[in-house]
């Protein structure tokens, strides 16, 4: 098994840099933001990029959920961030592979009308983000988008997309998506975006 502790991750400057990229991506839904390469050694299935984003956001005040079968991720994230693993219905961050069909997504927190910010953040790993990937084309509209912005994704189970659209049907309740692929492309889709499925090849 890989070395589990990541003493080399610079929690001050790398976190800051990753956060600015996240903020840019969240403020401009559908914009593809390239992440810098990270020298991390996460367990099988978790990408360096997602691990870096998780270290940027998670700490002992937060909770996260991974799917059954991904327990090594939990251990790795707990050791390196101090964040607790929790049930999907409780966690603030849900870290998953988009390919797997995830019926439990419907249980995640959407916040309430008094505190919609308590809705969860879904951190989803995809196989590809960008024009050359054609499985799913999403046309996005809303704050942060000038007109319409289209983003192409692959490696997202269509049923999961339907679940996300369903979770976000009642703005301001909903979840916010942080998507990244294995090459370090980052895209965010906040709940304020209207998602229109455009192409399905």
């Amino acid at each position: 098994m890989s070395s589990v502790l990541e003493p080399c991750f610079d929690r001050v400057f790398t976190s800051q840099r990753l956060f600015r990229l996240l903020l840019d991506a969240m403020a401009r839904p559908g914009k593809i933001v390239p992440l810098p390469a990270l020298d991390l050694d996460p367990p099988q299935g978790l990408t360096c990029f997602m691990a870096g984003l998780a270290f940027t956001l998670l700490d002992r005040e937060t909770s996260f959920a991974v799917l059954p079968g991904c327990e090594p991720w939990s251990r790795y994230l707990l050791l390196n961030s101090g964040s607790r693993a929790a049930a999907v219905s409780e966690a603030e961050f849900i870290i998953v592979d988009g390919q797997a069909d995830l019926p439990s997504l419907l249980d995640v927190r959407r916040g309430d009308l008094l505190f919609p910010d308590r809705g969860a953040t879904l951190m989803i790993m995809l196989s590809g983000i960008g024009a050359e990937y054609g499985d799913i084309g999403l046309a996005l509209q809303g704050p942060g988008v000038f007109g319409v912005r289209t983003v192409h994704l692959s490696g997202l189970c269509p049923a999961n997309l339907e679940r996300v659209i369903d979770l976000n049907r009642e703005f301001p309740l909903g979840v916010d998506l942080i998507l990244s692929d294995s090459r370090g492309a980052l895209v965010c889709i906040p709940r304020s975006s209207t998602i229109i499925r455009e192409v399905c090849r």
């Binding site: 903020l23 940027t56 956001l57 919609p116 942060g144 916010d176 906040p190």
Partner: peptide, 25 residues
Amino acid sequence: FAFLDENTKREIRRKLLKAVAIPGY
């Protein structure tokens, strides 16, 4: 760096992302 400890910064960063996701809230 930037005076605040990293835990405080992370909390503000998490809240900033939610603020951006729910404009005006």
